[in-house]
Design a protein around this nucleic acid. Sequence first.
DNA 1: AAGTTGTGCAACCGCCGTAAA
DNA 2: TTTTACGGCGGTTGCACAACT
Length: 270
Amino acid sequence: MGRQPCCDKLGVKKGPWTAEEDKKLINFILTNGQCCWRAVPKLAGLRRCGKSCRLRWTNYLRPDLKRGLLSEAEEQLVIDLHARLGNRWSKIAARLPGRTDNEIKNHWNTHIKKKLLKMGIDPVTHEPLHEKQPFSEETPSNAIHLQESSGNQSVQENDSIINSDDNSSSSPTENCSSDESLLLDNICNNESLVNSLWLDEAPLVDAATWENHPIGENMICNMGLPSLEENCAWLLDCQDFGIHDFGFDCFNDIDQLNVLNTLDVGEKQY
DNA sequence: AAGTTGTGCAACCGCCGTAAA
DNA sequence: TTTTACGGCGGTTGCACAACT
C-alpha cells in the first residue's frame, strides 16, 4: 500500500553540492524539464534525495534567479509584504521575480529584522516596540508607512477587501530613488497584484508556467532566450561554477523591463 | 600573526496538506 | 478508507569567511 519511497535513504549524500553534481542536475533538468523529483536523482546519476535536488534547483540553480543583495526597493517591498502576510516567505517571494523564499527569509533574518529593531519596530508585528523608546537617529518615515499598511489591517488572507487608502497612502516610495519609486508605484498601484496578495492568486512570477513545462520549450523560449540546445551548451560551459557567476546575465534584460533590476543602493533608508 | 566573535547563506529538518496506491 | 510518499513550506543549523581584538 502507499507509494514507493522517494529515495534510498542509505547512501544518500548530504552537505554542500559539488560543481559536478550541479552540472548533472542542470543537465538533467534542461534536458527533461522538471518532472517528479523522486526520479531525478536516479535518472540524473546523483546520490541525493529528490527533495535535496528540488531545493538545490529552486534555490540556487534556476536560471531565472537573481543573485546578490536585495535592492532597496525589493527590501521595502519585502517589509511591506511581511506586514501583510507574515512569515509566508513563499508568498512574499512570489512577488519578487528572481528571488527565492529562502533568500528572502535569510535576508529578513540577517538584515531587515535588525534594521527594524534598530528603528524600534517590532519585526513581527511591525508596531513600535515601546511608545517612549527613542527611535534611532534616522527618521522612520517608513515606520509610519509600515504602521499604516499593517496596523490598520490584520493579516486576514482571505479578506479580499483592500483598504482604499492602502494603495495611495501606503505607497512606500518616499525615500526611494526615482526608479525604485517607479517600481513600487507599479506594484502598489497594481490593483490586480494587490488583490492577488489577499486572494492568494496567481503569482507575479508565473511559477506554474515555470514548473509545468520544460525549460527549453517554455520558460527560456518565452523569455526570448536561446534554444534549449544553445542554452544547454552555454550553461554547461559555465560549469566552473559559480553558477551564480553564470550571472545569467542574459536575464538582466528581462529584469530591466520590469524595472526590478537592482538599482544602485546607496545608504539604506533605515 | 593568532585567536575570537560576528555575519551571511546554503542546506537540512520536520511538519503539513494532498494525492496515489 | 487507510496508509504512506510527495511536494512545499517555514524554522533552524552549520560552515565559511570577514571583522575585530
